[in-house]
């Protein structure tokens, strides 16, 4: 009875979270939804006499893998939320048809075939779940285990190789950088000085507060574009900044 309640609650939560993962516009929300699904599954593992896997699920998935996802999301840019407008004709329709069909087929099939009562893991787990698993992993599956270790090392090396960028020219010195800045200024009139920090000469130094120029107008350069866009969507952007950003957009 207790298991049923847990299952139904977590099943509903995980399905909703999975749907949220698929249909939320922002990648960060998707990542959070995935975290919810993973945690729910961890609990379901524990319920099904798999405490070790539940722990590994939380540590490896919700801990390491999810962090990696978020890390890459931040690296790539959290503003890269994509629109949900489909560009490939028929893709969404057929994807949903196939998904529904797949779910229906699998569900029906499982519902029809599996009728025997579960044997339960009481016998298998009598020495404790972790020692029993360990015995299996280090005896029968030891070769696969060793291979996975090789796989992980290879993956680590591969990630390093892929993410590493070889420098093909000498590192620019401060002198080179300075010269490049002024060349750019001479050609395009780009300000050679650092960008103004937010809130300079302003009422407070919050990150979304634009700096004021000496003549009292706001400097749009001082506001992070990502934050500005978020705030524009939420309607909390300072009206002066919004106005200037809009002018810039129209200017383009």
């Amino acid at each position: 009875m207790g298991e049923s309640i847990t299952f139904w609650v977590l099943a509903v939560v995980s399905v909703i979270a999975a749907l949220g993962l698929v249909f939320s516009r922002r990648a960060v929300y998707s990542a959070l939804m995935l975290g919810v699904v993973m945690l729910s599954l961890a609990v379901l593992y524990a319920v099904q006499d798999a405490p070790f896997l539940a722990a590994v699920q939380i540590i490896v998935y919700t801990g390491a893998v999810m962090m990696l996802f978020l890390f890459v999301l931040m690296l790539v840019g959290v503003d890269s939320s994509d629109s949900l407008v489909e560009t490939i004709r028929g893709q969404r329709f057929w994807a949903i048809v196939a998904g529904l069909g797949f779910a229906a087929l699998l569900g029906l099939g499982i519902g029809n075939t599996l009728i025997a009562a579960p044997k339960g893991l009481a016998v298998a787990n009598q020495n404790g779940n972790v020692p029993s698993l360990a015995e299996l992993i280090f005896t029968r599956h030891v070769f696969a285990f060793e291979v996975t270790s090789a796989l992980l090392i290879t993956a680590a090396l591969g990630a390093m190789v892929l993410a590493h960028r070889e420098r093909t020219e000498p590192k620019p010195t401060q002198r080179d950088l300075s010269r490049a800045r002024f060349v750019e200024f001479g050609r395009h009139g780009k300000n050679p000085a650092p960008l103004p920090g937010p809130g300079t000469y302003a009422r407070h130094n919050a990150i979304d507060m634009p700096a004021l120029l000496p003549d009292g107008t706001v400097s749009p350069l001082s506001v992070n574009r990502v934050i500005a866009r978020h705030e524009a969507e939420e309607g909390t952007l300072a009206p002066e900044v919004a106005q200037i950003l809009q002018q810039e957009e129209e200017g383009k």
Binding site: A18, Q91, R92, A98, L100, F102, A103, L106
Partner: peptide
Amino acid sequence: LSALLFAIGGVGVLV
């Protein structure tokens, strides 16, 4: 539940 989550994941990959 597993089948349902799998199908949802599959649709997500596609859309």
